[in-house]
């Protein structure tokens, strides 16, 4: 499915799978699996902002953790600048280059550490001088009086800035932001999104932003990938994906979002509810909810069709010759 690279890829996901055992019962582990990531291939291009969107449980965080080197996939390869990061122990210099920030910034902040201690420790780990602490904190729009505070004394927006500062101390070239603004109010949200845009523009840091909010994805992304039940169903240039989505699930997602539907002409409502990740529907995994489902959709999984200029969509509506 990977389109002809127009740019150099910083990360390549090649047919990646990750299943989790479903509920453990008193009789031991059940045989059922949650197919969290169910055959994902995706390139992240150097210097771009890639938006990964989908509803909760679609596997976005699992993809993020796999890309960040934090979770070994069951199969498939993850290449960072051509290097297979799960072929052995991940070398430190590579691990530092890929940094992750979370919806809840406290995940990456020690509650007992002051902001100063957190940043200094990160700078030291990266072999940098702790003299840079103040500059780093200031460059994220934080005033110096936060330096002596612990996370509990900070607002949500301030904590997210500190988490970004900590990540930047490592001089990453890929930043994975997993729902970085989902816990914030709109007025603070734009502040954080603008910081990320600035990091991309001025320092060329590649960003993968994960969000369930298509408005955020539109604002941030050069390209958008749409995930449904462990699989990427559509990828393409951000404006194309929002304005002229080709996959019915993307259409449904956009129609359901008041902020994204203003940017688009599509309007379809999906039927019913998200299926279970354990019993993923046969054929096209979206077919039970799809208003356009045809006979073939119930039987066979659609391949990726190239619908133009690096825009691919896994849907039988595109018919024609599948892209191999």
């Amino acid at each position: 499915m990977t389109p002809q690279p127009r740019k150099e890829s910083i990360v390549v996901l090649d047919n990646v799978y990750k299943y989790f055992p479903a509920i453990e019962t008193i009789f031991g582990r059940s045989k059922a699996y949650i197919r969290a990531v169910d055959g994902v291939s995706l390139d992240i291009y150097e210097g771009e902002i890639l938006g990964l969107v989908g509803e909760s449980g679609s596997g976005k965080t699992t993809v993020a953790r796999i890309v960040a080197g934090l979770l070994k996939p069951d199969s498939g390869r993850v290449l960072y600048r051509g290097f297979d990061i799960y072929s052995g122990k991940i070398p430190k210099h590579i691990r530092r280059k890929i940094q992750m920030i979370y919806q809840d910034p406290e995940v990456s902040l020690d509650p007992r550490y002051t902001v100063k201690q957190t940043i200094e420790e990160a700078l030291r780990a990266a072999g940098r001088s702790t003299n840079e602490t103040k500059d780093l904190v200031r460059s994220l729009g934080l005033s110096e009086d936060v330096l002596e505070k612990i996370p509990q004394q900070l607002s949500g927006g301030q904590k997210q800035r500190v988490a970004i500062a900590r990540a930047l101390a490592m001089r990453p070239d890929l930043l994975i932001a997993d729902e970085p603004t989902s816990a914030l109010d709109v007025s603070t949200r734009t502040q954080i999104l603008n910081i990320l845009l600035e990091l991309n523009k001025s320092f060329g840091i590649t960003i993968m932003i994960i969000t369930h909010d298509l408005g955020v994805a539109a604002y941030m992304s050069d390209r958008i990938a749409v995930m449904y039940l462990g699989k990427i169903v559509e990828v393409g240039a951000a404006e194309e994906i929002i304005k002229e989505p080709r996959h019915p699930y993307t259409m449904a997602l956009i129609s359901s979002s008041p902020s994204a539907s203003r940017l688009s002409k599509v309007n379809i409502k999906p039927i019913g509810e998200i299926a279970s990740q354990i019993n993923i529907p046969k054929g096209c995994r979206f077919h039970p909810r799809c208003p356009f489902a045809m006979e073939i959709c119930r039987r066979e999984e659609p391949p990726y069709f190239d619908v133009g200029d690096g825009h691919v969509s896994a849907c039988w509506l595109h018919g024609g010759a599948p892209k191999t």
């Binding site: 007025s187 949200r189 734009t190 408005g215 539109a218 604002y219 951000a238 404006e239 902020s259 940017l263």
Partner: peptide
């Protein structure tokens, strides 16, 4: 202005400080 975001190509929105 902040709730209804536009595309990246439209440029940066002014955030409320």
């Amino acid at each position: 202005d902040n709730a209804f975001l536009s595309f990246k190509s439209q440029g940066i929105k002014r955030a409320v400080s």
